[in-house]
Amino acid sequence: MKPASFDYIRPGSRAEILAALAAHGDDGKILAGGQSLVAAMNFRLARPEVLIDINGTKDLDYLQPSGDSLAIGALTRHAAFHKPVVDGPLGPLLAKVVRNIAHYPIRQRGTFTGSLAHADPASEWCLVATTLDAEMLIVNAEGERRCRAGDFFKGTFTTAVGAQDLLAEVRLPLLDDGWRSGFYEFSRRAGDFALAMSLAALKLENGRITEARLGVGGVADRAIRLHALENELAGKAPSRELFEDVAASAKAAIKPSEDIHASADYRRDLIRTVVLRALTEAAA
């Protein structure tokens, strides 16, 4: 349970990080919170030759509302979201979700963007980014590019971030006061990986849903945004019947993954349940 030997460098600035990535990116790995990477290294499932520790670059730890989005830096820890970080419905939504991420000590070290770059299918933040259509800022020594969540996640542990890239910032759209959200996760024990989870955000005006965001995580190789069902919700009054229909459609639409804790049949049952409960909470 000791990692294979590696070199360790600790750049002091964003420029130094990018230089280190350019020099070692193919054999290197960024260390942010390390909550997944270090365990994988101890199992020797990950064997980076060079560990590029970005924890010395303090200006990557920020939360900045700007325009119509919230910018999250590459070193912002999960624990930063324990209390609402921004006015409006987004802050409480993130505070609700963060409580489901592992355990308190892990939330003190693990980072928001680190979760996205790691792209575990059961990551709560990947579900949030996918459902709310986050925008990612990817930088390298050559320049920078932006990409939306729908193009960012490529599969289990796979994203648009290349070997020499740094996921420098993630922007989540701010939600205006008409939005309400619901989140439901089922896991074996408190803090375990989700066997299934759903995030629902509904914009309600005069008793009708004018806009909807609906996503499911932990059930496939990446979080899934259910565009078609969002359209089905739009324009209708929230009701148990409507939510039952949408939950049944979600169950039918997704081909779930299987593991020792959840067969495909069981995950299908859970998809219905988590979607129904997230929608119900959002409309409550």
Partner: peptide, 24 residues
């Protein structure tokens, strides 16, 4: 503890072998 049909143990970490915690 779960073995697959070839006799390979699938539950070799505390992410898969689940003792109850204070919460349970």
């Amino acid at each position: 503890l779960i073995y697959d049909e070839t006799g390979n143990l699938l539950t070799v970490s505390l992410a898969d072998y689940l003792p109850p915690t204070m919460a349970e």
